[in-house]
Amino acid sequence: MMDVYVDIIPKILPGAIITIQLLVASSCLALVIAFIAGLGRVSRFAVVRSLTSVYVELFRGTSLLVQMFFIFFALPAFGFQFSPFLAGVTALGLNYGAYGSEIVRGAILAIPNGQTEASIALNMTRWQRMRLVILPQAIRMMLPGFGNTSIELLKGTSLVSLITLTDLTYKGLMVQNTNISYTFPVFIVLLIMYFVIALPLIFGVRKLEKNASKGVVKA
């Protein structure tokens, strides 16, 4: 019985590495996009606000898998050929970046107005107000949300198996295909491996949630 697992795990481990690479790369992309779009949503320029909200609505209103297929299968029609990895990172980054921007925006708006007024009274520039006063407080509030989003993102990475990237899920399917009697253990192993990758994120979120209220003005 154990032999089965001993046989399976090394076969799908390379997939786990791809999954973790995907997780890290697209989390970084999503984070950058979340800040750009989140700041765009609270910009004083109406054009910037509407452009970013179109982006956010577009990516939150359609499915991650549809976006991934669009990038991988449809964009080549315009001459943009993405490798499966790049298509995966782009779709995950854009999709979770849109969700993340809501977290950024929400946290910025949650900072009491008195903080902005105090920094105006100290004659800070707009950017100084954002950088020195608003963001440091807002980021603390964003962290649990980002943590949760990263768990969602991890789950989302499994979709790249449908655009032929050999991630954890894809490797599992391959093993299952070559040895039908492995079907049950393979998927058990897959689920457990995803859970193991998620565990540090889960504990991280717990901790962040406990710390989130520190150093922020209480309403």
Binding site: S158, L159, T169, T183, F187, L190
Partner: peptide, 23 residues
Amino acid sequence: IEFVRSTPPLVQLFFVFFALPSI
């Protein structure tokens, strides 16, 4: 709850559709 929430629905789908029949 923690386990189901933090593992991909796609893999869960495979589990239900491919793996459960084997038991």
